[in-house]
Design a protein around this nucleic acid. Sequence first.
DNA 1: ATACGGCATCTGAACGTTCAGATCAAGTGC
DNA 2: GCACTTGATCTGAACGTTCAGATGCCGTAT
Lengths: 338, 338
Amino acid sequence: MKHRVTLREVAAQAGVSHQTVSEVVNGSDKVAANTQARVLAAMAKLDYHPNHAARSMRLSRSFNVAYVAEKPTELADDAMSLILVSLLETLQKAGYNLVLRTISSERQSQLEELRGALVQGRIDGVIFGAIPPGPAVLGMAAWKHPMVFFDQPTLGDGVATIWVQYRDGIKQAVEHLAAGGRKRIAFIGGPSETKLKILHNLERYGGYRDGLEAVGLKYNKSLVVASDYTINGGRMAARSLLKLRQHPDAIVAASDRMAFGALQEIKAHGLEVPGDIALTGFDDFELAQSADPPLTTVHFPVDELASQAARLLIARIEGKTAPSHVPIAVKLVIRGST
Amino acid sequence: MKHRVTLREVAAQAGVSHQTVSEVVNGSDKVAANTQARVLAAMAKLDYHPNHAARSMRLSRSFNVAYVAEKPTELADDAMSLILVSLLETLQKAGYNLVLRTISSERQSQLEELRGALVQGRIDGVIFGAIPPGPAVLGMAAWKHPMVFFDQPTLGDGVATIWVQYRDGIKQAVEHLAAGGRKRIAFIGGPSETKLKILHNLERYGGYRDGLEAVGLKYNKSLVVASDYTINGGRMAARSLLKLRQHPDAIVAASDRMAFGALQEIKAHGLEVPGDIALTGFDDFELAQSADPPLTTVHFPVDELASQAARLLIARIEGKTAPSHVPIAVKLVIRGST
DNA sequence: ATACGGCATCTGAACGTTCAGATCAAGTGC
DNA sequence: GCACTTGATCTGAACGTTCAGATGCCGTAT
């Protein structure tokens, strides 16, 4: 094993004390210019790199933050890798590392491990992806550590939550369809009866109701189908909608994947999009743009979501004040399917 | 800020020395049973968690390993989040955290940062995703740190590489199609002329050639089209194949996404799959299964890839001997498109 | 009885930083 | 010329763990 260069060796080389070197490393402004130059030269010559563990121990900060995803739900999600990459960008700039973790809601032990990592000082804070609310979330929210939650209602106190305005997005979609003269607007939503009662599902549904109301259309229960956010789920949902004696003239899907499945099914029935049925999705990832016709969809602002989350968390870690609830606006992108 | 419980406090509580507590924490077997019980009780009572930074400093190990993805290439890749999750599983069991990083080949500074993190002891080792080979990769391979590379040819010395047998996978697909009586088998491959000459592209192409040879078909240059691994790219590639005076009776695509795009295009031309044209992909993610008809495709063994990579890296970090080049076998999954 | 080996436990130092406070030289105002 | 401030640098301790070696105790062979 090769020897690691320390602060004191650099100090010896530069003919100053270790503390002076430390000040140069940390960019203190009270070091004289020529001393600083001498130290920098010594650092370069010896290829000095500060020891992270020692630093971390002294400061009781690890400069690591975790992104925690929920096991079954979030895995297959396209959004996850986009969010990760986007988070990474902001965090790296601020000198933080991003560590990845998963929890599955059944396994209590993983929660304990996560808490352990926090109190051990292995990570400074946590960003939680969309996690089904329940005792677990409440429990975590009570830990007094820096945390940011996606897709949760206000959790009170010092817990930060970030909220994408799903509701408004779906509402925009409904309004757009109505403006195009559609009267029978159906909705393919999230799994309403399973235990996955993640708030964003309910909100999307709420947005559908809001939209109908805003444009003066009557709510018709038979035009609402639950599905599971997969392509196949979307196809099944569309199939059941097309079985109605009078099929809808527009479908609002709660995700691009489901919209995509619906699109396939509609075509398979010999109907045209948008001629016979107009269609909207939600997410605006690759799938939406490359569908035929390209999907009108609500753009999910991954970058903004991630950078806000990172900034909020860092503010908390560093003890600065920051809002505890940040809404993220969304916007409908109009393409060929409407 | 609340006070952190230390080893010495636990020792005082249990009436032993700090060293004894340390031994209990680390599961040494030389501690008497009743002493151990006393210490464990004290730990529980005080809610003790070992300080990671101190530990890390003493052991000069951070118990963090990085996964490094290449910026433009790997972002949109479905495989990335699957790989991450799968890596996570193996690493967590062994007590390691997974930290995520990106590098873009243009930016030399990011390489320096990565090297810095390694020598600072911020991370113990690195797993590199598919990265275009070149001076950067060679440079990194020369660092004497534990590393594992995906999708690289042997890098010699102590550098570990993991190799998915893309070539064999595509070959299997060609053989399967030929066995079904197909004579004009086309290939939609990776971007052959761009700078993205990642080895796996060439290998897939090589597998196509191998397959043709194995079944005694002649290579026909006009049946090979380059594309960019997107759905849309697949569609474009298929379009150009369908323009040929005599269109192919089978298409082997180098990825599911491209196969999927091709499928759409074929249907748009009023042709049938697999009736008129048989089609295979590569990856076997959700898209393949939910296509209509479901795609015959080469299954990409994410789990095995990831767990092998993690095991190899850990072996290197912990100084155990391990092979330096591990091939991962693949298998064709036959579905409705052939 | 004495010496010895083995076992459980303890003691003190060390890892490489940062923090708090000390020191020292030079500059300022009277 | 003296007391005082300012700025640059140094010194020593501290963070919480693990390592190496010391200590004390017991049983057993001499």
